[in-house]
């Protein structure tokens, strides 16, 4: 099922100069895949830490507040910006993968640029507000 959806049409194979038969080798198809993996790993390791720090609410208010205050420093504020950037890319590109698999692989390249555009818009809405919250307290 996924292989079939990801196979290019014969017309595309003959007119394209990149390796035929897959959209995951070269150019937009490959780089979106690389970014999806890197952001996925980063988010996974943050998730492990994030569950442990949140679990401190079960220890004591002091313990939780001590750890969460380290998330409110400027350096961690920049880290949170990177984290949200990774999550937003992974989310939108994940929806792109679903559309490639269930809708139409023909538009994967265009959809990659839609993902980037949506990422920019979302980050424009998030980053200024978040940095003001971090740096004005």
């Amino acid at each position: 099922m996924p292989e079939q959806a990801a196979t290019l049409t014969s017309q595309q194979k003959t007119t394209s100069r990149r390796p035929a038969g897959t959209l995951y080798r070269g150019r937009e198809g490959m780089w979106s895949w690389v970014l999806h993996r890197i952001t996925g790993v980063a988010i996974f390791f943050f998730l492990l830490v994030h569950i442990l720090d949140t679990a401190l609410v079960r220890v004591s208010p002091e313990a939780y507040n001590a750890v969460i205050s380290s998330y409110q420093t400027p350096i961690m504020g920049l880290g949170e910006t990177a984290l949200v950037g990774a999550i937003v890319f992974h989310a939108f590109n994940g929806l792109r993968i679903i559309l490639i698999d269930f809708w139409n692989a023909k538009y994967q390249k265009a959809m990659f640029y839609v993902v980037i555009a949506l990422w920019v818009v979302t980050m424009l809405a998030f980053v200024p507000r978040h940095l003001i919250n971090v740096f004005s307290h």
């Binding site: 939780y64 969460i68 409110q72 949170e80 998030f126 978040h130 919250n133 971090v134 004005s136």
Partner: peptide
Amino acid sequence: LMVGEGVSALNF
């Protein structure tokens, strides 16, 4: 992170 004062308002 977005509502109110975001990350600065997080505590127990």
